[in-house]
């Protein structure tokens, strides 16, 4: 039970990171982006490539940071992947979403995002093969927190949680303490009014994609560290991430963080009462419950 709670919090840390980017995009561009979870896969695989590159070029970095299975090479790879995935998100917007948007087909954006999700997911599969991959082949031993009840935590998981919380703190400061944060909120509230007041709409949208992509990359790597990398990971993560945004309220960054942890914890706690095969349905149940008792989520507000 407590073990499930701990696992849930750790799962929640990467779901939150994924949900933050998604909720921002949904808030600013007003469409449910079904391809967001593919940015997680993309980020994870880009980091895999960068990790191999860095380790080959600078062998010193391939040493593990005990007790983590993490290497300096992977840390660098994560940073590189954040940049590359952020730029990819921007590129996808430029190539596809922007064009569909400018044709005035706001409702069709959902279709475009589903199409993009199919393309990205399967191109990754064609590129990297369909079998699972790992960042490190070594077995990561879990630390025993307590023997009775038996509580196990892997050092990597602690790193993931701490790093995720740090990133969220940085984002919080960015949103609440900078002009950029204000302009972002202004655009979300009322795009035309924000533009009248000198907020550059295009630049704000670009920033949202960059932030969303970068956070998605981290989330993807963290998922890969906790589980494994498979091309269909985006498909499996999509519903939990969406559930996190709905639980938190679409558009609320803090809601997404909290929602991510709730979804993660609920998924792991459900194992206590449900057979593990049903885990993929838990986010859906959560969505239904939230829609019944608080349709706009914990921090959301009604908006047409």
């Amino acid at each position: 039970m407590i073990q499930n709670l701990i696992d849930g919090v750790l799962t929640g840390s990467y779901i939150s990171l994924g949900a933050i980017g998604l909720t921002l995009v949904m808030h600013i561009l007003r469409f449910a982006n079904f391809s967001h979870a593919e940015l997680l896969s993309l980020g994870a695989y880009v980091a895999l490539v960068c990790d191999a590159l860095v380790a080959a070029l600078v062998p010193v970095f391939a040493v593990k940071l005990a007790p983590l299975s993490l290497t300096w090479a992977l840390v660098l790879a994560i940073l590189m992947s954040m940049v590359i995935t952020g730029l990819s998100a921007l590129l996808i917007d430029r190539l596809v979403f922007k064009r569909v948007r400018e044709k005035g087909l706001e409702l069709s954006m959902i279709f475009a995002s589903f199409g993009m999700a199919l393309i990205i997911r399967n191109v990754i599969g064609l590129f990297f093969g369909l079998s699972p991959q790992l960042y490190s082949r070594d077995i990561a031993f879990a630390m025993v927190l307590s023997r009775d009840p038996l509580l196990l935590v892997k050092p990597d998981q602690i790193f993931v949680l701490v790093a995720a919380l740090l990133l969220m703190l940085m984002l919080h400061l960015l949103l609440s303490r900078t002009t950029f944060g204000y302009s972002l909120r202004a655009v979300a509230e009322n795009p035309s009014l924000a533009q009248v007041n000198g907020v550059n709409l295009h630049r704000t949208i670009m920033a949202v994609w960059l932030i969303g992509g970068a956070l998605a990359a981290v989330a993807g790597v963290f998922y890969g560290l906790s589980h494994q990398l498979i091309p269909v990971m985006g498909r499996d993560l999509l519903l939990p991430i969406f559930a996190a945004t709905i639980v938190g309220g679409i558009g609320s960054v803090y809601g997404a963080v909290l929602g991510g942890f709730i979804v993660g914890i609920a998924g792991n706690m459900a194992l206590v009462v449900l057979p593990s095969g049903y885990t993929p349905s838990v986010p859906f149940l959560l969505i239904i419950v939230v829609l019944m008792i608080r349709p706009h989520g914990l921090f959301g507000e009604a908006r047409a």
């Binding site: 279709f111 475009a112 997911r121």
Partner: peptide, 9 residues
């Protein structure tokens, strides 16, 4: 799947 995604987009 890539084909059908491309058709949609």
């Amino acid at each position: 799947f890539v084909l059908i995604g491309s058709v949609i987009v």
